[in-house]
């Protein structure tokens, strides 16, 4: 069989596994969010479905599937249905270039843990997909033909494109240091030298900017203006019901996972083990080493997810003019300067 068929088979199997993983992570996020917010507010949180309420998110999704799918009479039917599809599909498609562990050698075939983490356009693909993600929300707001939806959609898209600039610029610092757009290269560059090569130490300013923009891109508190309940009901998803609403919901939590994963990969050393692999007696390319890498990576991601939720229940929402000021007047010039300084540093220290 030609090589291309194998590539397609391998990619399809990985893709299905990753899709399942994303749904599970979204479910986990919902559960964590509800439990942690309950503890933050001195409540118990979901505790009826399954042990400690762990099956609650699955029950919610099944319920949403069975709920009536209401499409308003005045809505643009086609785009009203397309918008959630676009949101969810793009949130899934980003994972084409994201690795979650090193690699496994089976025979003479090296299998990377990720669909195409070695691809030379990785970072650009992620940025392109985040840009397309804006369309889902804008379309949802416009096609509903509802004033709240329209305002929510507009706010959300304006916010996302404003912060996308700083996000793209902060990532240039990492590209400068690594000299590659492939996510595998970015992580491998941080693996050497145990800890102190993590990009968070080389790019502290870039890290803070990326963290802030990650919150804004995922529309999470303190930047959750698109769905500021007291003023806009539900924002862009006011007119959605049933699983179409559920798709926005899933996409939002999938994006939260993606952001945490990206922060770990770009700044926190990815799957770097705390001790060299040799001292653990794990062979390069073995399944055990890949599993250990995945475990370290997953723990870091969970800590970041907790941080996302923690911030939501600690910090009040921004006002819209404050949001725009922060994005355009503070983050944009700082990230531009950061790019120039990083470039100088890379040239002089190499």
């Amino acid at each position: 069989m030609p090589e291309i068929i194998w590539t397609i088979i391998e990619a399809s199997i990985k893709a299905l596994a990753v899709v399942g993983g994303i749904q599970l992570m979204a479910a986990l996020n919902v559960y964590l969010e509800r439990k942690i917010s309950a503890f933050a507010q001195n409540r118990i949180g979901p505790n009826r479905v399954g042990p400690f309420g762990t099956l609650q998110p699955f029950a919610d999704v099944f319920k949403l599937f069975l709920k009536e799918d209401i499409v308003p009479k005045n809505a643009d039917k086609f785009f009203h249905s397309l918008a959630p599809v676009l949101s969810l599909s793009i949130a899934i498609a980003v994972w084409a270039v994201i690795p979650f562990s090193s690699y496994v050698d089976i025979g003479d075939r090296r299998i990377y843990m990720g669909i195409a983490p070695d691809i030379n356009v990785g970072l650009l693909f992620i940025l392109a997909m985040t840009s397309v993600g804006v369309y889902g929300i804008t379309l949802a707001g416009w096609s509903s033909n509802n004033k709240y939806s329209l305002l929510g959609g507009l706010r959300s898209s304006a916010q996302m494109i404003s912060y996308e600039l700083s996000m793209g610029l902060s990532l240039i610092g990492i590209v400068l240091i690594t000299g590659s757009l492939s996510l595998n290269d970015i992580v491998n560059h941080q693996l050497a030298w145990d800890g102190w090569r993590w990009n968070i130490f080389l790019q502290p300013v870039g890290f803070v900017i990326f963290l802030i923009t990650a919150f804004a891109e995922t529309n999470r508190a303190p930047f959750d203006l698109p769905e500021a309940e007291p003023e806009l009901v539900g924002g862009f998803n006011t007119e959605y019901s049933g699983m179409k609403f559920g798709m926005f919901f899933l996409a939002e939590y999938a994006n939260m996972t993606t952001s945490s994963v990206l922060i770990v990969l770009f700044y926190l050393g990815g799957w770097a083990l705390p001790v060299p692999a040799e001292t653990l007696g794990l062979k390069d390319g073995s399944i055990a080493l890949a599993a250990a890498h995945f475990l370290v990576f997953f723990i870091k991601v969970l800590m970041l997810l907790f941080f996302f939720i923690w911030v939501r229940w600690s910090i009040p929402r921004f006002r819209y003019d404050q949001l725009m000021n922060l994005g355009w007047k503070i983050l944009l010039p700082i990230s531009l300067l950061n790019v120039l300084l990083t470039a100088l540093g890379v040239l002089y220290l190499k």
């Binding site: 893709a15 069975l66 709920k67 249905s81 599809v85 899934i92």
Partner: peptide, 30 residues
């Protein structure tokens, strides 16, 4: 060929999206 996995993932992603949309239209109460 390097970019084939990207296309596969886009197809799978949109497949899941459309599947969910169709399921919600079929399974939902009317």
């Amino acid at each position: 060929e390097t970019y084939v996995p990207l296309i596969v993932m886009l197809v799978v992603g949109f497949g899941v999206g459309f599947l969910f949309m169709l399921l919600s239209e079929w399974l939902g109460a009317r």
